[in-house]
């Protein structure tokens, strides 16, 4: 079985020094080793954004999709071959902005795949515009007087729409992220891991230091029950805060926020997806009987 190093390609990562993507990349490769992935069946689909450059750095069955469209491309791939492990990496602008519709419907489907969101609360690759998860009233080049919208409640949205594994990671904690990715990949159903991933170049507010002072691990809270859907939803609402909130005022939970085992996946409803579907095209289908019905 391939180990962490084996999932690298000859291409050297091109992210900015200190970018949260490096740690996410590391944690993902560790999770691939821990879940015994092989190159032939690990299919990773990227959207477009800084995170997407990972397509050049990951040895696998890679698909570098369109901006915002990683989820439907990954869904088509998953629906064409049940033997693949499908992982989607998407950005916040990518997955929660232009591609938000696909996110909602993918949650509803509980399709068996893992989604890792590189949530840096900014558009990095297009040089610093506000994203759907940018803090309310934060000033960016596209919102010089401040963002007038509230950020998308990504965790609450995923829970509300039917994702069966919803977690949040912090790019400053690789072992914790690795464990989340591992559980997400092992989860049968639609697993979302939204990762606070500081952008060191364009987001001067939500920095590593800013997050370190605010994140806490829900699994260390006595009594937190990630199988309580209403409780998880309530917790997601507490993560809203204003830009000026002090570490004491806003505590940001990380860890497995919600999980539900046993709900049928989308694939469970497709008995016809019992083998890779390229096998349907080994020879022309015999339509003799069907055609008789047209007579």
């Amino acid at each position: 079985m391939p180990t962490v190093k084996d999932f690298e390609t000859p291409n050297k990562p091109t992210w900015c020094p200190g970018c949260g993507n490096f740690n996410m990349f590391q944690a993902l490769r560790q999770a691939y080793e821990l879940t015994s992935q092989d190159f032939e069946h690990l299919a990773v689909v990227w959207g477009i954004g800084c995170h997407g450059n990972g397509a050049d750095f990951t040895r696998c069955q890679g698909f570098h999709a369109l901006h915002g469209r990683a989820l439907p491309a990954a869904t088509g791939l998953a629906l064409s071959n049940p033997e693949l492990t499908v992982v989607v990496e998407m950005g916040d602008g990518d997955g929660y902005g232009i591609g938000l519709g696909h996110f909602v419907h993918s949650c509803r489907r509980n399709i068996d795949m893992t989604v890792v969101a590189h949530d840096n609360q900014i558009y990095g690759l297009t040089t610093g515009q506000a994203s759907p998860t940018t803090e309310h009233m934060m000033k960016t080049v596209s919102t010089p007087t401040g963002v007038l919208e509230e950020p998308v409640n990504t965790i609450g949205l995923a829970i509300a729409e039917g994702a069966t594994f919803v977690a949040r990671g912090f790019a400053g904690d690789v072992p914790h992220m690795t464990a989340l990715f591992q559980q997400a990949i092992e989860h049968k159903g639609f697993a979302v891991v939204d990762v606070f991933q500081p952008c060191v170049t364009w987001n001067k507010l939500n920095t590593f230091a800013w997050f370190r002072e605010r994140v806490y691990k829900v699994e260390e809270e006595s009594g937190y029950d990630p199988t309580d859907r209403a409780g998880a939803m309530a917790l997601s609402l507490t993560t809203f805060h204003d830009m000026a909130c002090t570490p004491e005022q806003c505590k940001l939970p990380i860890g497995v926020l919600y999980r539900e085992e046993g709900r049928p996946t989308y694939q469970d409803g497709l008995p016809q997806l019992d083998e890779p579907l390229w096998k349907r095209a080994l020879a022309p289908r015999d339509l003799t009987e069907m055609v008789r019905g047209f007579m």
Binding site: G76, L79, R280
Partner: peptide
């Protein structure tokens, strides 16, 4: 397009 990558027609 994703399904075509997987090899299905």
């Amino acid at each position: 397009v994703g399904a075509a990558f997987g090899g299905a027609r």
